[in-house]
Computed example of a mutant assay.
Amino acid sequence: MTSTLFSPFELNSTLTLQNRILMAPLTRCMADENLVPTEQMAQYYARRADTGLIISEATIIRPDGQGYPNTPGLFNQAQVDGWKKVTTAVHNAGGKIFAQLWHVGRVAHPFFFGGGDVLSASNIGIEGSVPRMRDLSYQTPRAASVEEIAQLVADYAKAAKNAIAAGFDGVEIHGANGYLIDQFLHLASNNRSDEYGGSVQNMSRFALEVVDAVIAAIGSDRVALRLSPGAYFLMEGNHDDRAVFDHLLQALNSRSLAFVHIGIFDDSMTFDYLGGHASDYVRKYYKGTLVGVGGYTAETGAQAIAENRFDLVAVGRPMIANPDYISRVKNSEPLKEYEDSMLQALV
């Protein structure tokens, strides 16, 4: 069954993957104090270059997009130069790598960017504190103005250009998991009454503007999007969310993206307003290449691909524990079990 995973897969006329296994984006908080990727990160990614495609850890598009310590950026030349070392190492090892572009929205904290407002779709905050920095409590965000939204769109496009300059093969726009773009797509976090809220068209507008701006900057063949139609992380679900994603997914069908990637930690979860699993819901409406993720093994991922539930499978924590994941699966060797202690070092 797993042999299916090791055949090449053509994303489009410019990108062919050596296999159907992707390295999922994994936030490791290991950039330096200036959010510049390190030599250790270059070695970490290069060890996993035999995956079909590496999706980088989430990478912030501008300073006020930061909500976790030591997450890398793509908004200045030092960061671009740092990422060049990573992409060169991956390419020299025969791999391909996309940058995941990120703004956390209301999950940001002014501690990281020297003060100022936390921006979101609306002034609806979340409870809790910043991971790894429990003394920092989340702030109530301010709803971004229309002018600020336009600047955010431009900053996503600029970060995409920076990613290509840094040697990435493309970008994945992070529109999932309760972060900024996702905050516009769910009623629990978007109570706007202007052109970015209220109707399904308006709630989808920011996501589509970002997608279109990034496509204009680097070409649709190099652009992917991650989405969480089932609210589950940093977000409360609402039955009316479905109509927003019905509209958004069908609008994406005309964009010729490299792929859409489900944002879910565990795809065994079901959502009554989606009629079951998030991946099956997206498959119903989105006609392009789909990446499944969320607790799949090589065997269960291959089975899901055989059943046409999605086309590619992304692997997360097992890839942390096993830099040689591809080799182990190919040779039917046992995998090392992931442990939280593994987050303390890049191997």
Score class of each variant (00 low, 15 high):
5 L>I: 05
9 F>D: 04
11 L>G: 03
13 S>K: 14
14 T>V: 13
20 R>M: 03
21 I>E: 10
23 M>R: 11
24 A>N: 11
26 L>E: 03
28 R>L: 09
28 R>C: 03
31 A>M: 03
32 D>M: 06
33 E>H: 14
35 L>K: 14
37 P>Q: 08
37 P>L: 00
37 P>Y: 01
37 P>E: 07
40 Q>M: 11
40 Q>S: 14
40 Q>T: 13
41 M>Q: 12
44 Y>K: 10
45 Y>Q: 03
48 R>G: 02
48 R>C: 06
50 D>H: 15
50 D>L: 12
51 T>K: 12
56 S>F: 10
58 A>M: 13
62 R>S: 13
65 G>Y: 01
65 G>A: 07
67 G>L: 09
71 T>Y: 06
77 Q>A: 12
79 Q>S: 04
91 H>F: 09
95 G>M: 07
95 G>Y: 08
98 F>K: 02
99 A>H: 07
101 L>W: 01
101 L>A: 01
102 W>M: 10
105 G>I: 00
108 A>E: 00
112 F>N: 01
114 G>H: 00
119 L>A: 06
124 I>G: 03
127 E>K: 15
128 G>A: 07
130 V>W: 09
132 R>D: 14
134 R>L: 15
135 D>K: 13
136 L>R: 08
141 P>W: 00
144 A>V: 00
144 A>G: 05
148 E>Q: 14
151 Q>Y: 12
152 L>F: 12
154 A>S: 13
156 Y>G: 02
160 A>S: 06
161 K>I: 01
162 N>L: 00
163 A>Y: 03
164 I>P: 09
169 D>Q: 05
173 I>K: 04
175 G>C: 04
178 G>H: 02
179 Y>L: 02
179 Y>T: 05
181 I>V: 12
181 I>T: 10
183 Q>L: 06
186 H>R: 07
186 H>F: 01
188 A>M: 08
190 N>I: 04
192 R>F: 04
196 Y>G: 00
197 G>L: 00
198 G>L: 05
204 S>M: 06
204 S>V: 07
205 R>E: 01
212 D>R: 08
212 D>Q: 10
214 V>F: 01
217 A>E: 09
218 I>R: 07
218 I>K: 08
219 G>W: 11
222 R>T: 02
228 S>D: 00
231 A>G: 02
234 L>S: 12
235 M>D: 09
236 E>G: 11
240 D>C: 11
240 D>R: 14
244 V>D: 05
244 V>L: 08
245 F>A: 03
247 H>W: 14
253 N>S: 05
262 I>T: 14
263 G>F: 03
265 F>N: 15
265 F>K: 15
266 D>S: 07
269 M>I: 13
273 Y>V: 10
277 H>K: 14
277 H>E: 11
277 H>S: 11
279 S>M: 11
281 Y>N: 08
282 V>G: 10
284 K>E: 14
289 T>F: 12
290 L>R: 06
293 V>H: 05
295 G>K: 03
303 Q>S: 12
307 E>I: 08
308 N>S: 13
313 V>C: 05
313 V>I: 11
317 R>H: 06
317 R>F: 07
320 I>E: 01
323 P>C: 01
324 D>E: 02
326 I>P: 06
327 S>L: 12
327 S>I: 11
329 V>E: 06
330 K>Q: 14
331 N>M: 04
331 N>G: 05
333 E>C: 05
334 P>H: 01
335 L>G: 02
342 M>G: 03
342 M>P: 04
344 Q>Y: 15
347 V>R: 15
